[in-house]
Design a protein around this nucleic acid. Sequence first.
DNA 1: GTCTATATTCCGATAGAC
DNA 2: GTCTATCGGAATATAGAC
Lengths: 196, 196
Amino acid sequence: MPPAPAAREKVLDAFESILVEHGERTATLDAVAESAGVSKGGLLYHFGSKQALVEGLCERLTARIGSDVETMRAAPEGPAAFYVRTSLYTGSPLDRTIIATSRLAQGSYRSAVRVLRSMRQRWFEVIVESVEDAAVARAVMLLGDGLYYNAALNGDWIHDVTGDTGTSVTDPARVDLDELLGVVADLIRSRTPADR
Amino acid sequence: MPPAPAAREKVLDAFESILVEHGERTATLDAVAESAGVSKGGLLYHFGSKQALVEGLCERLTARIGSDVETMRAAPEGPAAFYVRTSLYTGSPLDRTIIATSRLAQGSYRSAVRVLRSMRQRWFEVIVESVEDAAVARAVMLLGDGLYYNAALNGDWIHDVTGDTGTSVTDPARVDLDELLGVVADLIRSRTPADR
DNA sequence: GTCTATATTCCGATAGAC
DNA sequence: GTCTATCGGAATATAGAC
């Protein structure tokens, strides 16, 4: 591949960060340019319009999902567990691109909606293939969706970075990964035909 | 209660509709006023600023959640099943208020984030009380969150209005309610201590 | 490729008539 | 209570210098 224009990636990173941390309203060309360390004119050289910027982010998501799906398919723990585990927000590049694109989709950016739907479709295909039960696969998908919904809602992204002992049992937002994976395993087991 | 200014409610309805159908960016005072059939000046008489409008929607959500939680607590099918069932978008007033508020929360409206968190907290308390297992309760919450995430993503809200027979099994977005409730029932059963 | 203007449109809010 | 008119600021996009 070509040397890859560094400025383009920097602009995309900045756009992503502002979307994740401050929402769509704040992600103006001015703000993105400043955060990327270029002028507005410079930004508009790489992305001719705001729509082009949105398109750029969508393409980045498509690319990142491609490698994620490959990893998922080969995951030793199984695609379902892998999917649930990686749906818990950790601030990975993929996480951030997903949240940023979700923010755009909540606006009226059709292309963001399209790319997110296709992402879900690709995940689902791999999961349903491995659990052999469409109902369970859809439930697993929903659990992952729920984790992203919570990530997008909380904003500060602190789930388990603090090693505090007082994790309140009554806080629905504080999801424990091992606990959840246990539930998922039970779920899959309870639905797997015991014909062997 | 006082006669309840009809115009205020109409404005709030319009704000909600635009948020749900076109997103936060489109929900300008101009657009809301036009959709509500009043002038911008008229709107600003009832809600002195955009922030006041946001606050008004948050208060509406708080009120509607209050009655929802009561209904949920008394539901014959049990709070968990009730919660999952009503998390599937049907276009009810509560559904619309939740989606609208979620749209605001994805922006940087702190009050919307706060009211949504408190909503989840209240739901969770009722659910955990009935299933007696915090892990299951959290998983159930996530399933509901996932349903709302999907509703917010699809935008056209068509899940089951069409009586088409060709519901593709490979479409993760097309959730069948009975199927999902079956999974939830299995889940609760698999985790309920059989000590009786 | 990147910059500094500048044109244009639009949004939120205020003032004041009716 | 509801309206019209308008100000000030911000956002997208363009033009053209370096």
